[in-house]
Design a protein around this nucleic acid. Sequence first.
DNA 1: AGCACGATTAACT
DNA 2: GTTAATCGTGCTC
Length: 205
Amino acid sequence: MGALRRDFFQESTLRVSRALLGSLLIRQEAAGNRLAGWVTETEAYVGQSDLACHARHGKTDRNRVMWGPPGHAYVYFTYGMHWMFNVVTEDEGRPAAVLLRAILPHKGIEVMRSRRNGKPDRLLTDGPAKLCQALAIDDQLYGADVCRPGGPLWFEAGIEVPDDVVTKGPRVGLNNVPEPWHSKPWRFRVERSTMEDLVEREGVS
DNA sequence: AGCACGATTAACT
DNA sequence: GTTAATCGTGCTC
């Protein structure tokens, strides 16, 4: 299984968003914990013209990493309590990123349970802030290179997800975003149970 | 300097 | 279905 390289992310954000489904997100902590999960939900945020994208106001201290080279982590804090994790896409100078919205836990589930305060397993990583809590992703990982296996965070090629089980729909949580951006079908999702079936079929232990 | 609001979550009716 | 929690960010004055 190969790690996803920078050229994987230096691509159309919509294609990267779709292609990340089924890949394995790996979090290696300094303390020694190795956590991992299969990506089951993403959203694409595409440049300054996309009025849902944080790049819409131009480059700021918070979003500057989106203007940098692809394959780096854009981590931000919101609602006064939650962290969100994105991967920067497209060519350097073009601000765009994919938001990681959900994963299916694979390794380190005990650690995830404790971080998530003993919540039921199906609620451990089924939201963008939940997966950040479970994987201990916060501002320390701002700008981290996710193309370095053995670093704090990277992706490996995982399970192939066929088109007929992928749901495309509008991005969620965009309260004051005008059309047409509000309704662009830039959210990509696989049902948890479907992902479990695909994993089992693949015979991954 | 002040203010409205957020790429959410959990708890509640 | 509704709503509080909680504070950094970016906009307006």
